[in-house]
């Protein structure tokens, strides 16, 4: 037998199996507490998230920003940098995009849309850059920094939709509707799936090529595997940290722009929350491979949508979705323990 089999022959592997079982038992126990049958709830979740046309469409809608942010998280992770700031970068990106709308008036539609997305990417990148510079220049921990920037971004949005970017009527804390030519067209009639899907898939391709084929991607991956070797190879770790956080910010900002231009049509408070941490799970389960990110993004999006279905149909509260996400991450870590080769220890 080689070291990759699932045979529990070491204490660590045994413990990992126990933990996996405990995770499943926790989920079943919670559903039982809510007065439901775990198997029935699971079936309803999978059906609601993936097997009905409307559920699948909602899953795709949610997977689009998750995929974009997950790509950025994967880039950062590869360099050993944790970007938990997806939510804040998304918000600032969306704000930047809406802020440039007046400048785009009169441009041909494709050009205007491109300008909108560029502005969104620039806004998100700037927000990521702040964390990057704090880390590279001052050694500030990027986890705390990106999370603090998330909270700050929420306040910035809250101010903008009550101040400079508020709709002319000035009643509700929200921006004016985007003009029609700045809206991303709906891709599939009868659903809310916009051309943002194409944007996300193009981003997957671009990130994959950059990571696999470019000098930058090589430096990123090398830094994550062995920072010392990277330094000898002429890669500057500080620069890598800045670049992955800015790139992740740009992708999250793009996600924010797509949310506004493809889904909501305007800025408002709380229009996109909870993507950032889920995107970490997305990147992790994709094993930081950009080509797998859309797949895992679909998985977590379906989990979210399916949990919503379950919560509406039964007495199982919606926050179960966060518990499931946690169990999935911990389960992924435990499985990693089982796959360890004893010889490497």
């Amino acid at each position: 037998m080689d070291g990759r089999t699932l045979t529990p022959r070491r204490p660590e592997a045994r413990l990992a199996l126990v933990v996996l079982a405990a995770g499943v038992a926790l989920l079943a126990g919670l559903i039982w507490l809510a007065g439901e049958n775990a198997l029935r709830a699971l079936v309803a979740l999978v059906q609601g998230g993936f097997l009905t046309p409307s559920g699948l469409a909602d899953t795709v809608v949610r997977a689009i920003p998750l995929c974009l942010i997950g790509l950025g998280v994967a880039c950062a992770f590869r360099a050993g940098v944790f970007n938990i700031g997806g939510d804040g970068q998304l918000l600032i990106g969306a704000c930047a995009a809406v802020a440039v709308v007046p400048l785009l008036a009169g441009l041909p539609a494709p050009l205007a849309l491109a300008g909108l997305m560029l502005a969104g990417m620039a806004g998100g990148a700037a927000w990521g850059l702040v964390a990057g510079v704090l880390k590279a220049r001052f050694g500030a921990n990027e986890i705390i920094a990106t999370i603090m920037l998330n909270y700050i971004a929420v306040q910035v949005l809250s101010w903008l939709v009550r101040g400079p970017l508020q709709e002319p009527a000035g009643v509700f804390p929200r921006s004016a509707r985007l003009p029609g030519e700045l809206r991303l067209p709906v891709l599939i009639d009868g659903t809310r799936i916009s051309a943002g899907l194409v944007v996300a898939l193009v981003a997957v391709g671009v990130v994959w090529i950059l990571l696999a084929r470019s000098r930058w991607g090589y430096g990123v991956t090398l830094t994550g595997q062995n920072a010392e070797a990277a330094r000898y190879g002429g890669v500057r770790p500080g620069w890598v940290a800045i670049s992955v956080l800015a790139a992740g910010g740009a992708l999250a900002g793009l996600a924010g722009t797509v949310e506004v231009a493809g889904l909501h049509g305007r800025l408002q408070e709380g229009f996109a929350t909870g993507f950032g941490i889920t995107a970490i799970a997305v990147a992790l389960l994709a094993r930081l491979n950009p080509l797998w990110v859309p797949v895992t993004a679909m998985g977590f999006a379906g989990l979210y949508v399916g949990s919503g279905t379950v919560a509406r149909a039964t007495a199982v509260p919606f926050p179960l979705v966060n518990v499931i996400e946690a169990v999935v991450i911990l389960g992924f870590l435990a499985l990693g323990v089982l796959r360890r080769r004893p010889a490497l220890e």
Partner: peptide, 17 residues
């Protein structure tokens, strides 16, 4: 760090649930 991130989600989920 990854385990800690899972704890964030776990606490958010358990308390909300």
């Amino acid at each position: 760090i990854v385990a800690g991130i899972a704890l964030i989600l776990l606490g958010l989920g358990l308390s909300g649930f």
